[in-house]
Write a protein that binds this DNA or RNA. Structure first.
Length: 270
DNA sequence: AATACAGCCTGGAGGC
DNA sequence: TGCCTCCAGGCTGTAT
């Protein structure tokens, strides 16, 4: 599932094939993903040159003079640059046909993703109110400490709040808390400044590592079956409930926290 | 303001 | 083998 590292990997993979190219036309096979695709995408994008591809949180923006296409991959979406005559497969919902023999194709079986439009000079409502990028200097332990005072929600829920910091999904929240030795159940407001410093460092280290791993498959991006490849990275806790902790050997605990499956070590994480 | 949680959607896993 | 239920996931909208 696309977390921030995979979205960033997608951005880097698309860049050399899409940036500087123009859109010939847009083909919507399915007009509704999570939300209806606005007419602006079909009406305004054709003829425009894609000047840049940006990422904000887990959103991708294709910038043109007329505005920006705003994409989210949801949990099952993928974007590929393919030869224009590539046969359509199930769940290929949108084609952005480029001005050479390539098409940018959006596939999303579960349709949790979206394709929206942001006019020049505007900030789309979905992007307003987002917290800082986790890999930027704006994100650190002091920020987590300040925002968490007085909050009783579990620290894992707090860390996954996109108003606090963006891009930390269920997998990386679990992994970062393990690395920092913090129980996911602990009230956010009860975690010390020192431990938040360790947590912020863990988030940065894990995301940076995952992006580096995703980068190894960039060259496959144009091939029809080139799959993003950081899945095989070794996870310490996610998906390992009941299995031995890699640090102390005790069985890992598993429970639902904030409606999300959560795994942690009751001994190493306090 | 903070918290809780249903709902969106589909495919895969597991039970029978 | 097929049918059923459950689960996964990010994020929004509504209720408390």
């Amino acid at each position: 599932m696309p977390e921030l590292p995979e979205v960033e990997t997608t951005r880097r993979g698309l860049l050399p094939h899409v940036a500087g190219r123009s859109v010939e036309h847009v083909l919507l096979r399915r007009p509704d993903l999570r939300w209806p695709i606005p007419h602006a995408v079909e009406d305004l994008l054709p003829g425009q040159r894609i000047d840049a591809i940006r990422r904000r949180a887990k959103y991708l923006l294709l910038d043109t003079d007329a505005g920006s296409a705003l994409l989210h991959l949801g949990m099952s979406g993928s974007l590929r640059v393919l030869p224009s005559d590539t046969p359509v497969r199930a769940h290929d919902h949108v084609d952005i046909v480029l001005d050479y023999d390539r098409v940018l194709r959006f596939n999303d079986p579960r349709r949790f993703g979206c394709l929206l439009w942001q006019s020049p000079g505007e900030l789309h409502p979905l992007l307003a109110g987002l917290g800082p990028e986790p890999l930027s200097d704006d994100f650190d332990g002091d920020l987590l400490f300040a925002l968490s005072r007085g909050r009783s929600a579990p620290v894992k829920v707090f860390l996954m709040d996109q108003a606090v910091v963006v891009g930390v999904g269920n997998i990386y929240a679990a992994e970062a808390l393990f690395m920092a030795g913090i129980s996911p159940l602990r009230a956010a407001g009860k975690v010390s400044r020192e431990r938040y410093a360790a947590l912020a460092d863990a988030v940065k280290a894990i995301l940076a590592h995952a992006i580096a791993r995703g980068g190894t498959t960039l060259r496959d991006f144009i091939s029809p079956d080139g799959a993003p490849g950081y899945f095989e990275q070794e996870l310490s806790v996610y998906g390992r409930g009941g299995e031995p902790c890699r640090r102390c050997g005790r069985p890992l605990k598993q429970a639902m926290i904030g409606q999300r499956a959560s795994v942690w070590c009751g001994h190493c994480q306090r």
